[in-house]
Design a protein around this nucleic acid. Structure first.
Lengths: 160, 160
DNA sequence: GCATGATGGTTGTAGCTACAACCATTAGGA
DNA sequence: TCCTAATGGTTGTAGCTACAACCATCATGC
């Protein structure tokens, strides 16, 4: 079976997407590390908790919302717990499960950090695109996510 | 100064892009690790060398083409050298510089690996998009790269 | 010539992630 | 009532990346 290579247009799109994949996370990480001593992933964990009812989520649900595996989340939450930004406690309804809850310092942290982070996202993504392009980007990334994660095991959030 | 928060459309686009940033690299990495014992970044290094004249590039040029910092590249090339896929030698014109060259086994490796990798890229990105969306993606990622890397210090490749 | 700064690259190390192994609890049958 | 499989989560460890420190060479001005 012969390979279907990429044509020029496809190659341009892919090479640029690959570059974004490589560079953008670093930009987000370094702003957050500099201003808040958080990685982008840690920020996302705090942000998802801050929007949840009672600022509490089960580990599995939190992993799904943050597009991560459970082992990764477990390590990250432990570190956040050591820093006093999050606390864990056993789930009353299911003894297997663990709940993660944002603490008061965690809430203050995310409140203080959000504006700078949103500004960074605007600067490098949103504000460099036209409104049409923003809609296009949502459709394109939606299609990619469908194929990367067809069952929505991770990232339930991106579905409308 | 008050924060300009994201509206619904902007938020959808950003959340999905963030999910792609988190999930797609893992998909690419695991295919390559499974089929060729290479990370996506290592693959890219070999691929850029394979397209260069004499399959040779200076470390700085290679770092630029692969969107990486020099320290990162240096570590990766050392590992590839240990595996016999790449070799390094001092640059004749500038004694400060180092050239990296693809070896014969490295050439065979990239030749054998490329079809499977292209297939993965097609499956998860190219083939899930319409031709219009592929053009849109190139424009969108181009704009993002302009802001992330305005001087083209990294990633000179994405420029037309 | 020879300082001084810029350029090109390597190395050491701390910290995060992936993967696999593992344990506890729950659910579903027979 | 067990037995088994599935679910929910944690832990250990190897391996990669980021950051800073470092060294050598080149270029410039005087």
């Amino acid at each position: 079976m012969s390979t279907r290579w990429l044509d020029d247009t496809e190659m341009t799109a892919w090479v640029r997407l690959a570059a974004v994949l490589e560079l953008l996370p670093g930009v987000l990480d370094s702003q957050l590390r500099r201003d808040a001593e958080l990685t982008h992933y840690e920020y996302y964990v705090l942000a998802m908790l801050s929007e949840a009812p009672k600022r509490t989520l089960r580990m599995t649900a939190l992993a799904q919302r943050t597009n991560a595996t459970l082992p990764r989340l477990s390590h990250v939450v432990k570190r956040l717990e050591d820093r006093g930004l999050v606390e864990r406690f056993p789930c009353p309804e299911d003894a297997r499960a663990t709940n993660a809850r944002l603490t008061a310092p965690g809430w203050k942290k995310i409140k203080a950090t959000a504006p700078g982070h949103v500004e960074t996202v605007r600067q490098h993504v949103i504000d460099v695109l036209t409104p049409e392009q923003i809609s296009q980007l949502a459709a394109i990334t939606g299609a990619i996510l469908e194929s990367v994660d067809p069952d929505g095991n991770l990232s339930a959030v991106y579905r409308r």
